[in-house]
Design a protein around this nucleic acid. Sequence first.
DNA 1: TTTCTATATGTCTACTTTTACATATATAAA
DNA 2: TTTATATATGTAAAAGTAGACATATAGAAA
Lengths: 182, 182
Amino acid sequence: MNTLSYGLLTLLSANSLSGYELTQNIKPLWRAGHSQIYPLLMSMEQQGYISYQLIEQSDKPDKKEYSITEAGLEQLRKWVEAPAEPPVLRDELHFKLYSLWLTKPEEAKDLLQKRAEFCKSELERYKVLLKANEVLRDERGETRELKATTFGRYLLIRKRVLDMESSIQFCEWALEELEPAK
Amino acid sequence: MNTLSYGLLTLLSANSLSGYELTQNIKPLWRAGHSQIYPLLMSMEQQGYISYQLIEQSDKPDKKEYSITEAGLEQLRKWVEAPAEPPVLRDELHFKLYSLWLTKPEEAKDLLQKRAEFCKSELERYKVLLKANEVLRDERGETRELKATTFGRYLLIRKRVLDMESSIQFCEWALEELEPAK
DNA sequence: TTTCTATATGTCTACTTTTACATATATAAA
DNA sequence: TTTATATATGTAAAAGTAGACATATAGAAA
């Protein structure tokens, strides 16, 4: 049971999902490919934290729909309450900024503009997720309170939105700082 | 030559440093332990990107002071100009926020308060680094322009400061959102 | 009719990262 | 005098991650 396993339990505690859907849904929360996810699902199924049902589909290939078990929910509950490890951020841009004096002004500018563009496209994705979560909240007749299943997701997506907005602001500020050198 | 190798070259392009010092200095830029760093230094030395000089010390154990070579600088220059890969952020808090509805209000509050404290202590570290970089800039008689060796570091540390301030603001906002549930 | 894309599930290898093991010098504190 | 801490350099094993390999269904487009 590593962090990613708990992440999968986290998603399954809100909805029953297939491995494929988990691979898509986990993207805004954690970077992981399907080659990591399928083996963990099999292992957690063997440990009794999740179970699956084979869903036969006519329009698409059949799938395994995983659900969290009582044991899995109990395991997750304990983990959520334990303090969170400090985040791990690995960003090449940090090194490239540090070595910026080695580059030509156009290349420094390009580096920051490309990052800004990336963050803007991420921001759009998160704003869509925020909307979708609000729709789900209304569907479930929930309000903005801790016990609502959509509340934590609301906080999380807001966090990612703030992170991206802050990154975009940094890039734009840095581009201005660069201006006199042009 | 992986990203961490280029990170070590980045630090060595500004100053000659030992493996131990590199391990300390790289912390604000990238997470890496000394067990990763020493083997990479040996490999880069064999490839001719860096060289070292044994420094005998009377007050401390002897050390190897690594310097970047012309070949290393050329290699680094090419890498810096290539576009930066998207950042990889792995934060347990994302999952814990998503599963927040499973917890008691005090535990949710504790989770956010602890993260805020962590970010505040990181912020202090970065502010010290920012001051140290300004002192170095003055010592070298540099101004805030691209060609100055302290300029990129100035941008980078400002980025980290903005990141931490944004995280602290998120925690404080989320704690307020949590309030009515108490 | 072939090709492309999305859905769907898996394995394998290479690489990276973490944690523990291992050793050694010098200073400072208990 | 033992112990703890900071400095200093390495190795080994285990765990985690990324990218490629592998296969299959179904719909849509060329």
